[in-house]
Each structure stands twice: as C-alpha cells, then as structure tokens.
Amino acid sequence: MKLERVLQYAQTLLKASIQEGDIAVDATAGNGHDTLFLANLVGDSGYVYAFDVQKQAVDATLNRLLDNALEHRALVLKDGHENVAKYVTKPVGAAIFNLGYLPGSDHSVITKPNTTTQAIESLLTLLKIGGMIILVIYHGHEGGKEERDEVIQFVSNLPQKYIHVLRYEFLNQKNDPPFIIALEKVKELPVSE
C-alpha cells in the first residue's frame, strides 16, 4: 500500500460511504469532475445534487454529465451550497466540497467560511449514519487561510460522540498544499430546541 494523494483519498472516502441508490451532494461543482464521479457511484436509482454560484461551473458540469450520458442522475443548481436544505430533503450518503476558487476562472470568486459552515451544518443533519462529508481545503489564495481556520475551528467543536473528524495531509509539501477534512456521522445528532 502507498499513501494516496489528496484527491485520490477523497475518492476512496466517497466510494466507502456511497452505495448505489444513495443521494450525494457536490457542494462545489466546479468543472464537474466530482459530480461525474458521484453520478457513477449512485447508479440509476440514486441522485446527485451539484451546487455552484458561477454559470461557467454549472455549464461545465452539465456538459461533463451530458458527454457521459449521466445527466439524468444529477441536478446542477446555480445556487450557493448554504442553500442545500432547500433542495435536498432525503438522507445523504456523502457530500464533497473543494474549497477555494474555480480553476481557470475569476480567482476573486471564492468559497466563504460563513456559507461553508452553514452548508456543513445542514449536511450533517441530512447525512445518514455512516455517511461522510469530505472537505478538500485549498488555502493558498487570498481569503483561503481565513476559511481554512474557520472551518477547522467549526469542525473541531463537533461532538465526537456523533461526528468523527479526520484530517489528512502531507506535511512536507511546499506552497500551501491542499488537505482533507472528513466528517463521518456515527450517530444522529440531538435535535436542538
């Protein structure tokens, strides 16, 4: 066995937590790679909800699904991931975020800590037992370190009895390499009053 790179490991975690027929969420559709990967995992009886605030990302994701004849397995929404609960009402097998900006686009359009933590909170409620939220954290851009720090603060305070939180990273890589935070729901969260 050898250590998996960050994106390989994210896919390994998704494969481990998604079964055919599941609902999955791509919280940052980007160029559609994760949406396509999820659409393959959920099968014809499952469904993927993909979110992005940029038309360029929505179009790229739709085209990637169409090119692979999997558009019937996904809904690509031009909306922020903080609104996930408006669209997704059934239990979710897994969700993935790539925090940062859309490669090859306007680098000033970035994910924000407040909407990211709001989306995580909604997804934790929707997540089924054994389901995972995978956060691939890119933090080398302007605003990236603030988001990284707020997300780490937020997930570090999740109750360990209900949510397991893992950090996977290579410590000796240069130039702010991305890393993963994975959240696994092990027990239903208590309903807050």
Results as ranks from 00 to 15, higher is better:
residue 9 Y to K: 15
residue 10 A to F: 13
residue 11 Q to W: 13
residue 12 T to I: 13
residue 13 L to H: 11
residue 14 L to Q: 08
residue 15 K to G: 11
residue 15 K to Y: 13
residue 15 K to L: 13
residue 18 I to K: 10
residue 18 I to H: 12
residue 19 Q to A: 15
residue 19 Q to R: 15
residue 19 Q to K: 15
residue 20 E to V: 15
residue 20 E to R: 15
residue 24 A to H: 08
residue 25 V to F: 12
residue 27 A to H: 10
residue 27 A to N: 11
residue 33 H to Y: 12
residue 33 H to D: 12
residue 35 T to A: 07
residue 37 F to R: 02
residue 38 L to P: 01
residue 44 D to F: 09
residue 45 S to Y: 09
residue 46 G to I: 02
residue 47 Y to W: 08
residue 48 V to H: 01
residue 48 V to F: 02
residue 51 F to T: 04
residue 51 F to I: 02
residue 53 V to Y: 07
residue 53 V to I: 10
residue 54 Q to D: 05
residue 54 Q to V: 01
residue 55 K to Q: 10
residue 56 Q to C: 05
residue 56 Q to L: 09
residue 58 V to I: 09
residue 58 V to F: 03
residue 59 D to A: 10
residue 62 L to F: 05
residue 63 N to M: 09
residue 64 R to L: 12
residue 68 N to G: 06
residue 69 A to M: 12
residue 69 A to F: 13
residue 70 L to I: 07
residue 72 H to N: 12
residue 75 L to R: 14
residue 81 H to S: 06
residue 83 N to W: 07
residue 86 K to W: 14
residue 86 K to I: 12
residue 87 Y to E: 08
residue 87 Y to S: 11
residue 88 V to L: 06
residue 89 T to V: 14
residue 99 L to N: 03
residue 99 L to Q: 00
residue 99 L to K: 02
residue 101 Y to L: 05
residue 102 L to E: 02
residue 102 L to W: 06
residue 103 P to D: 01
residue 104 G to F: 05
residue 107 H to D: 09
residue 111 T to I: 00
residue 111 T to D: 04
residue 114 N to H: 12
residue 115 T to E: 02
residue 115 T to R: 01
residue 118 Q to N: 11
residue 122 S to F: 03
residue 123 L to V: 00
residue 126 L to E: 03
residue 126 L to F: 00
residue 126 L to C: 01
residue 126 L to I: 00
residue 127 L to F: 04
residue 127 L to H: 00
residue 128 K to M: 03
residue 130 G to K: 00
residue 132 M to K: 13
residue 133 I to D: 00
residue 134 I to W: 03
residue 134 I to Y: 04
residue 134 I to T: 01
residue 135 L to M: 02
residue 136 V to H: 01
residue 141 H to G: 07
residue 143 G to I: 03
residue 143 G to L: 03
residue 144 G to Q: 06
residue 145 K to T: 14
residue 147 E to K: 04
residue 147 E to C: 08
residue 149 D to C: 12
residue 150 E to T: 12
residue 152 I to W: 07
